[in-house]
Amino acid sequence: MTTAPSQTEPQAQGDILFDIRGVGRYFGSGDIQVKALDDINLTIARGEFTAIVGPSGSGKSTLLQLMGGLDAPSVGDVHLNNKSIAHMSGRELSDFRRDHIGFIFQAYNLIPVLSAQENIEYIMLLQGVPAAQRRQRVQAMLNTVGLEGYADRRPAQLSGGQQQRVAVARAMVSRPSIILADEPTANLDSVTGSALLDMMKGLNESRSMTFVFSTHDPKIMERASRLIHLQDGRVVEDERRG
């Protein structure tokens, strides 16, 4: 077990997916200014299965949002594949998220009026994937997440765990560079949550998909190969495990 304060060891350039340099995100101004993130320096390598952990309010969501291009840093810069995403326009960011980021949120991830397979298909429509290929990829993804028989169910007809599996399938199917998941298990019971994490871990290993997820559940963080501890917007520990 290695412990390094707020810095990671240098890695080979080619492996680095995300490069977060001197990033701060401040809300408000003057006396009431809140530093949700302060002086974050991190790199995320391809193929990592990383957990961002810390108490509520420590800045986990804010960090994931900056990485996913949902928010812009107050200072510093975020690079994905050596391209800065901190200062993209609205439409560039839309397309960036569509093509590079897979999102999984805490809950209510899915579009209620679309069936499981339509939810998964939606993002490929945005990408302009041809119909035949879409159908085949949706089918393959449903098998991968173990929901073969549930293609035509609406989200309301699925359990919480099944909904999150569809969310994982939707995030994966667009073949993003990375999947960002903000407390994906927070609304699940611990058995279902652990199963979801095992499935994600399996995808990480079999397809070398990079995952970064946040959690404050010790049982869930056990499964990560790297733990980034946040406290009051700062990285207090960056822990790698065998």
Partner: peptide
């Protein structure tokens, strides 16, 4: 609102 947030987050353009 939340639903539109999800649609936007996963890459739907504002015009759409």
């Amino acid at each position: 609102t939340r639903e539109f947030g999800v649609l936007k987050a996963i890459g739907t353009r504002p015009g759409l």
